[in-house]
Simulated scan of single mutants.
Amino acid sequence: MDPFLLKFFPEVYRQKQAASKTNQYCQYDNQLLQAFTSSLYLAALVTSFFASAGTRILGRKWSMLASGFTFLVGAALNGAAQNLAMLIVGHILLGIGIGFTNQVRDCSLR
């Protein structure tokens, strides 16, 4: 995790190193790191509200294909990320893929 922190969150890495000597709590207290983490969950939540309409229009097969493609694009973007903006956009795409897939799966269980 240290190389990841050094590349994208250097201030968090410095806080972590300083905290390891004094305080074990709040090592990762950073708003950008929290935005990065929350972006996946928020995107999944928002997408799940709209996915049922998309499934109704496109059908289950195409909805699952679109959500899988979105997830793969997000994973590729995260893997190739050069800065924090690319990382957050990739996380949002992952969240969209997860939220859409979750809603499509739930619709098929009814």
Rank of each mutant, 00 (worst) to 15 (best):
F4L: 06
L6P: 08
L6D: 15
F8D: 14
F8G: 11
F9A: 08
F9M: 02
F9R: 13
V12S: 12
K16D: 14
K16W: 15
A18V: 09
S20E: 14
K21I: 12
T22P: 09
T22R: 09
N23P: 10
Y25N: 06
C26R: 15
Q27T: 12
Y28N: 09
N30F: 13
Q31R: 12
L32N: 08
L33E: 13
A35I: 00
T37F: 12
T37V: 11
S38T: 15
Y41P: 04
L42A: 08
A43F: 03
T47Q: 03
T47D: 03
S48K: 12
S48A: 14
F49D: 08
F50C: 15
T55P: 07
R56A: 14
R60D: 08
R60T: 06
K61R: 12
W62D: 11
M64G: 01
F69H: 04
L72H: 07
L72C: 13
V73Q: 02
G74N: 01
G74H: 01
G74Q: 02
G74S: 00
A75H: 03
A75K: 00
A76F: 02
A76W: 14
L77Q: 09
G79C: 02
G79I: 01
A85F: 05
M86R: 14
L87V: 04
I92F: 03
L93K: 04
L94A: 09
I96D: 00
I98Q: 02
F100Y: 09
N102A: 08
N102I: 00
V104S: 02
D106H: 11
R110L: 04
